[in-house]
Computed example of a mutant assay.
Amino acid sequence: MKRLSLLSAAMVLASGIASADMQVVATDVIGVEGPQIVGNDLYYVSWAKETVNKWDGKNNSVVKEFPGCGPTGLTLTPSKTLFVACSADPGTIMEIDLKGNKIGQWDADKKGDKLAGGVNDMVTAHSGAVYATLWGQATKLPSKVSGKIIMFSPESKTWSVVAEHINYANGIGLSPDNKTLYVSAEVGNVVYKFPVNKDGTLGDMENFAVLGALSPTQYTDPWTGPDGIEVDRDGNVYVAQWGGGKILKISSTGELLKVIEVPGSSGTTNIAFSDDNKTMFITAVDDSSASIATGKIFKVEKQ
């Protein structure tokens, strides 16, 4: 028998995680993404219906419709408001209260540059700073590598560019100590990391994980790569694989720890953890290649 490489052995050990205990808490959500826990409620978005929604543990409801936004991400601020990432190009970032009333809106960074390509995902730091990804040029070859990370200053209430040249910037997450920022580059199927400086700016971009080397995707299209990112209290990085129907749990050192299969899905979009860190919520579409991306939200014990 041919001897397995260390990488192949790790892949075998990490695969085949059962998902039978997953509970479906929302169905038929077209373009489901952006899960965000707020107390006992789960907020999420439909990028196709252009709504922010809420599941209160029993029922799902529409909080507010935002025509022309194409929402793909949410993040909770220290003031218990939500920032909404609008993926419509050029992008917009809105701040809303928990009832959906708009508090603020930004259509450009502090230099006056539009949020080109649309805003994809966001994460809030302990300081109140917010990091957001800009997709960049959302076309296939030839195209510029123009994805960016922008940072919101809670003092100046403005956004500034803190990283550039990310190949279709998508999901984003912070380590528990807020010293490392992770971002997924959808083209190339890779996750990068950045050291976070004391002033919130970012150091040089580093490779964190080449996902194709850890676990194969369902499709060979190099434009189909990682989507949302969530980091748990232990520093493990959970990466939703668009076109993969699964979530990869990766240690802070880049080791694949677990593959979490999502039943009946070919496109996971994001993850959120409950406040007690015992439950995870997964947003996923049934068929990532479909023109109408109908999906579900799963609730499962954190793995």
Rank of each mutant, 00 (worst) to 15 (best):
T283F: 04
T269M: 04
G203D: 03
D287R: 05
S79R: 13
G235Q: 03
S274L: 06
W242Y: 15
T139C: 01
E255C: 00
I150Y: 00
N101I: 01
K102S: 05
T294H: 10
D56T: 04
L4Q: 14
T217N: 12
T27V: 03
T124W: 11
G295D: 01
S156C: 00
Q218I: 11
A185W: 00
A132C: 14
G171H: 07
T51S: 15
L256V: 07
S5I: 02
G203W: 07
T133I: 08
T269N: 06
L98Y: 11
K140Q: 14
T51P: 13
V191N: 11
G39K: 06
L202G: 12
D199K: 05
G212M: 03
G104R: 12
G147E: 06
D287P: 02
I37V: 14
G100K: 05
D41A: 13
V262L: 13
V32C: 10
G295A: 01
S87P: 01
I172L: 11
G118Y: 00
Y182I: 10
T220A: 15
E50Y: 07
M122K: 06
M22G: 15
N189L: 04
D97P: 09
S215A: 12
L134W: 11
V52R: 03
T77Q: 11
V300P: 02
Y131T: 03
I260T: 02
T51A: 12
V262H: 13
